[in-house]
Design a protein around this nucleic acid. Sequence first.
DNA 1: GTTTTACAGTAACAAGGGTTACACAGGTTT
DNA 2: AAACCTGTGTAACCCTTGTTACTGTAAAAC
Lengths: 210, 210
Amino acid sequence: MLQELKEAYGFIFEDELIEEINRVGKLQVVGAGEKIIEIGDYVKMMPLLVEGAIKIMREDKDGDELLLYFLERGDTCAMTLSCCLGQTKSEIRAIAERDTKLIMIPIEKMEEWTSKYKSWRDFVFESYHARLSEMLDTIDTIAFMNMDQRLMKYLQDKAKINQSEVIAVTHQQIAYDLHTSRVVISRLLKKLELDERIKLQRNSIEVLEL
Amino acid sequence: MLQELKEAYGFIFEDELIEEINRVGKLQVVGAGEKIIEIGDYVKMMPLLVEGAIKIMREDKDGDELLLYFLERGDTCAMTLSCCLGQTKSEIRAIAERDTKLIMIPIEKMEEWTSKYKSWRDFVFESYHARLSEMLDTIDTIAFMNMDQRLMKYLQDKAKINQSEVIAVTHQQIAYDLHTSRVVISRLLKKLELDERIKLQRNSIEVLEL
DNA sequence: GTTTTACAGTAACAAGGGTTACACAGGTTT
DNA sequence: AAACCTGTGTAACCCTTGTTACTGTAAAAC
């Protein structure tokens, strides 16, 4: 675990903090597609992402869903962070986008490290900053872009996070992530294929434009 | 200034911190409608809102605008906070919704107080938490609600923040805030009036349902 | 091999909301 | 009073997106 920790966080945290994380953190391995946090959960551990990728989803009372953003190695979930500190329920759902390794930190350490390590404070603030930026980006996307642009952006983001220009996904899954219907997605995908920006296969899409 | 500070923040910060804020902070009075922060500004001071209300707007490259949320007494702008720490440009615009008093804190104090005062740390984290929640709320609104629902929510929020069920606003201004066109707003307002949920006058709207 | 099931393509139609154009009403300026 | 400006009401039209329905097809289950 120590090795992975150093790779993902070594250039941020001082050795002393890395060792402390190594001591108190619990490694958790999650398979692609598995749920990590559900809406309404009380969060008692703070996750540090050391490998893989996670997608963060929003859902309202009627069950309508929307993808908010992806997290990568070196990221943490600011929402969770927020929940830990505020002792409130999670407002989002986290799902492993691919096989993922997390280090879970008990929240008691949060307060301790925040006063003890400047690098930890900076990391927490930086995380909040990054997440606010992602949220702004999400808002821009749904407020200012049409569905065809959103779809293309989605495919590109997903290709990037999975480090492959071929992404394994059905039209229905895309529809859930973008909060629209399967028919709409199929229609727009076909148009993107005609424009030679993607190639369609059953259960997968090749993104030609990254 | 000390009196106002205590009223707005006395129950959060210890006396020592209040006094320090009083010493280093600069009081700034802003009239309704005046701009406080513009997109692209480098932010060198962090504002604490002691009186009034501020609206936070997002704008993309094409000049399309969208209201994100309002801030009230006791709030601070987490975006600004974020900018201060990251030394990046502002991604939002802040405009006084009504006459407003701010106390501006030089950013050097941020780092100092963060390690020195637990109440300050908690305040900063709590601010981030509150702003993330507002952003989620904004996303819910634009992703899951129709324009008529968004409009009614807007009118209610605006009535609340201005502490009056009669709000002074033109249809065009509403259209800018909700990122739609004046005609659409006029159409929907008329429908809301027929449903007896609001009353329309020239340059103002009375909200009957709060 | 046949039957199911999940996925994808497509047409036809409905609804929401954006656009253009024009009329009119209240104030303000001259 | 006449001219002007700003804000509002409304019709007609169009585009994007959502909905329903039906077809075909690949893969999996039987």
